Simulated assay, not measured.
Amino acid sequence: MLTFEEKQTIIESFPELSRKDVSMKRVNYHYADSKFDKTVVVQHLHPNGNAFIYVADVPGYEPDSRGLVNVREASEAELRKTIEDAIAGLAEEKTEAEPVEEVWLDGHNSKLELKEEIGAWNIYHGLNLEDSFGDYQEAADYLREEGFKKVEDGGIVR
Rank of each mutant, 00 (worst) to 15 (best):
I53F: 10
L127A: 02
K81N: 02
I83L: 10
A74L: 01
T3E: 02
W121R: 03
R72D: 00
N48K: 11
Q137T: 14
A140P: 06
E113R: 12
H44L: 07
T39R: 13
I87R: 00
V58T: 14
K111R: 15
S110Y: 14
G49F: 11
K150V: 03
I10P: 07
A77Q: 13
K38D: 10
K25F: 06
E117P: 01
L114D: 13
R72S: 07
G119S: 06
H125K: 14
V103C: 14
V157A: 11
H108S: 13
E76H: 04
E146T: 01
E102R: 14
L90H: 12
I11F: 14
F148G: 03
G134C: 04
H44K: 05
L68R: 02
D141I: 09
I83Q: 02
P47K: 08
I11N: 07
S132F: 00
I10T: 06
R144H: 05
V58N: 10
G154I: 07
A51C: 07
L45H: 04
G147I: 14
R80F: 09
Y124P: 04
F52L: 15
K7E: 08
K115C: 06
A86I: 06
R72M: 13
Y31C: 07
G89F: 05
I123V: 15
D131W: 01
F52I: 00
R66V: 10
A74T: 08
V27C: 08
F36N: 07
V55G: 02
K149E: 04
L17M: 03
Q8P: 00
E146H: 09
E102Y: 11
E96Y: 02
K20E: 12
E96G: 00
F133P: 02
V157H: 04
I123R: 01
L114T: 13
R26M: 15
T82L: 05
D33R: 09
D106I: 08
N122Q: 12
V40T: 15
L112E: 01
M1F: 00
L2E: 01
D33I: 07
R144Q: 10
A97L: 15
L112Q: 03
D57T: 11
L79F: 06
K20G: 03
L143S: 09
L90V: 10
R144A: 11
